[in-house]
Design a protein around this nucleic acid. Structure first.
Lengths: 174, 174
DNA sequence: CCTACCGATCGGTAGG
DNA sequence: CCTACCGATCGGTAGG
């Protein structure tokens, strides 16, 4: 599904992947969109729980950011196929579900923004455009699924660590 | 096409957008894939020309990076529909064209990597994982098309400027 | 879980 | 540029 995309993956493709006939899939799901729907909303919920946990347990914006990145990377690298649906294919949800999904994503984004805001209030982060910084940050995080190889050398924790230090202090020597 | 995606946009959709019949489109193109193909390769070429120009004209890694980001943002915000195809829908190119496209993208990526490498050699950039830094950088740049609004306040130059400073010096105060 | 099949829609062609 | 149409394939259903 990651190669072909959601629309280009037919119920017959899915069925043959599990060695049954297409019509038999309908004993497990009601519509094709259920697969997309369940995957997108499950991941949204996982991420939301993750960042709320981080906000409850840790103190200090830098530490919160570090842990939020860590959780995000851990969750999206756990199941790359599901993450692909969550990151790219949610556009093909039905209009109602799409609206619902977007508001979940926005809520998650706001949690990240709050951390950046906190960092500014603490005096440890620069006075950046928060909305902009959050989008750029999440873009970097989500792009990981495009190149991440679970069988490669880099563990999710290491990826998260590198991303955090990149985001916090950038490329340039000071 | 940006809303529905390449696969979900039928020739009938395209035709009705220009007020003709679907079959009449075939007087202008040979196959649906031609649209995707031409758009993807045109943009790849533009970006490649852009970064080569930057590498010829400017000196110093920080300055080169700044200008490369500027060119990239300028080009992808010029035509958001085309950029959508270039960034997301190239997956649906035919196998041969896909391979060709990927090698163009890799070449472009290498130009960015070379700038980061140069920065390290000059002693102005940290000793980062170059491959990793390049991917993260390009992820941030390409994500711009997801939220950029041509009618909004931010001009492409301003977006590029903010991105560059984010990439160079990060969030944290030093 | 299967066979058999449906209406809808697709990319594309023939012929003018 | 059009009408008319094609074979293929789609998501999904009926009935067992």
């Amino acid at each position: 599904m990651r190669d072909k995309g959601y629309l280009n993956t037919s119920m017959r493709d899915i069925a043959s992947a599990v060695n049954i006939e297409a019509s038999s899939l309908y004993n497990h799901i009601k519509r094709k969109e259920d697969i997309l729907e369940q995957t997108c909303f499950q991941l949204a919920q996982k991420l939301d729980l993750g960042i709320k946990e981080v906000n409850d347990i840790y103190f200090g914006a830098a530490e919160k950011l570090r842990m939020a990145v860590n959780q995000h990377i851990r969750i999206i690298t756990e199941d790359l196929d599901a993450s692909h649906l969550f990151i790219h294919e949610w556009r093909h949800l039905s209009p109602e579900k799409k609206t619902e999904f977007i508001s979940l994503r926005d809520a998650y984004e706001k949690e990240f923004r709050a951390i950046i805001q906190l960092g500014f209030n603490e005096g440890v982060f620069k006075d950046v455009d928060e909305k902009f910084a959050t989008l750029t940050l999440l873009a970097s995080l989500n792009w990981v699924i495009e190149w991440y190889n679970p069988k490669g050398e880099m563990q999710p924790k290491e990826v998260a660590e590198k991303l955090t230090s990149f985001i916090l202090s950038g490329l340039q020597k000071n």
